[in-house]
Structures are given as structure tokens and as C-alpha cells.
Design a protein around this nucleic acid. Sequence first.
DNA 1: TCATTGATGTGAATCGTAATCATTACTATT
DNA 2: AATAGTAATGATTACGATTCACATCAATGA
Lengths: 136, 136
Amino acid sequence: MNVEKAWETLKEHSFKRTKNREAILEFLAERDGYTAAMDVGEFLKKDNPGVSFDTIYRNLTTFAELGILEETDLNGERQYRMHCDPGVHHHHFICTICGKTKHIPTCPMDHIAVNLPGVEIQGHKFEIYGKCPQCQ
Amino acid sequence: MNVEKAWETLKEHSFKRTKNREAILEFLAERDGYTAAMDVGEFLKKDNPGVSFDTIYRNLTTFAELGILEETDLNGERQYRMHCDPGVHHHHFICTICGKTKHIPTCPMDHIAVNLPGVEIQGHKFEIYGKCPQCQ
DNA sequence: TCATTGATGTGAATCGTAATCATTACTATT
DNA sequence: AATAGTAATGATTACGATTCACATCAATGA
């Protein structure tokens, strides 16, 4: 997902084009891993020292709901990244130092015969954690 | 893992046997799913209204480090459960309503050819979320 | 039993996140 | 371009979960 595509999606749902949103998308588009909400905020403050955290959280949540961003909880913080292949289900290796991710194209749900009678499955999470080559 | 085994482990690492620890282990031994740290605290308060949250968190963290408990982050809260099969690697289905778990005996790492050159894998997480039969 | 060492309680601090609401900025229309 | 309508923002406040510092207290083993 690139920035233009994100704007299309936002427009489709009649969200307005604002400086803050532009900055958030621009920032995340250049990163290739997960970034904590707070770190996104830090970046926004450079251009706009008065941004409120609420604005950041609201927009990140909105973007995640629209499928523009992917979201994960990593050691108690919410982390976001551009949705790399919208529509294509996948998972990630995540570097525990810098947050960088690598694509894992396969999904365990396709390979494991899960035997869970009576349960209603809503979702799943498969993440591999470790150190990327640069962080070792 | 049962309570006696937990005490053995604690003793091995020269942790003392205290009322609070007894209560925590007793409580978690009787539950069959993940329980939020705060809920463990609520229980402890029944016998010992003055327990501090710090004590609870400290002990839960210690127990998790020793492999007595399993830990997971579920919507921003830390959840704990008795380590069901210490030494035997496994995963869980987790009910998003009540926290109850079901064993998933297989591990995706054994079934998926993960191609991550140069990375140092430290761990992984595979969890399936949904509603258990009782909570639907 | 006593001394040592570890565990605890207190109370407040911190950290991440969410809610409220008045003000401001988009957008489409005139 | 001015305007109206609506959505987005910033300020403030609040909240829940977790952690800290430190003095006191309790379990252990000599």
C-alpha cells in the first residue's frame, strides 16, 4: 500500500485530507517495519509541535480499521506499519530491536489441522521475533 | 505444571514461600485459561486486602521467567496461566470473552519453511482467537 | 533463636490510551 | 471567492495498567 492508494481509500470513506494525516502516512510509508504510536507522534511534533496525542491515536486507529495500516501489540505498545499487501493474507518476522519486519508469505492456518470443535474462530496471530541482520 | 512442581522450581532458585505466592499459585492452578494480572490481584485481596499491585506484578513476572506461568498480551493487558506442559512446546486457542484456552498441540514452525536469511530467531507467537462454546 | 536476605506495602509516579468539547480547517456548493 | 456544513483538531482531563523507591517486615537456614 502506498500513500496515494491510502488517500483513495480515505476519500472513498469521505475522510478529509489534512496535514496531520499527510504527515503520518508520509512517515510510515518510509519506514519498513512497525513503529510505536508514540514514535509517530514524536515525528509529527517536528513540524507541528502542538499535535495532540489524541489526533495521533485517532488517525492510527482509523487507518488500521480501513486496512491502510497493520497493527500489532508489541511489549504493551501499539505498533503500526503500512499494510504491505492489502488483501493478501500474510504474517511477519519482527525485529525486537528496531521493529523492522520481513514478510512470511505462508499462513499456519493453511498447514495445521486445527481441531477446535464448537469454537467460533475470529482471528489468529503468528509472529516470529528476533534480531535482524543489522541489529545483531 | 502443578503447584508442588512450582514450589520445587521456586526453591531451586531460592525464592521464599510466602502467603502471597501461595495464593497466586493456588488461584491460577484452578483456572483453565488466561487471567489478567488485575484479576489475580482481585482474588488475593479477598484474603489479604492490603496486597499491593506491585507484589502481584513482581511475582507474576518472576513466575513467568521461571517457566511456571505462561504469559500473553491480550488487548493491552497482561494475562497469565499455569504453564500447561512445561518442556512441551505448544500453542493455544484463546477465548476472547472468558480467556479460557484450548491446547493446540502442533507448532507452525515445524510445518512452515520459514526463509529468513541472516536473522536470529528468538521466539514466536501463534494464537488463535475466538469464542469458546460457552461464550457464543 | 537470631541474623540475613529477600519479600512486602505504601503511595505516588509514569506510561499509554481514551473522552470531552469548543475551536478550527476541509470540501463542495453557490 | 464566499459560504455552510461537517469533520478534524488541540487542550485538557481522566483513566487503567504497570512500575518505582524505600522503609518495614517475614521466611529461611545457621
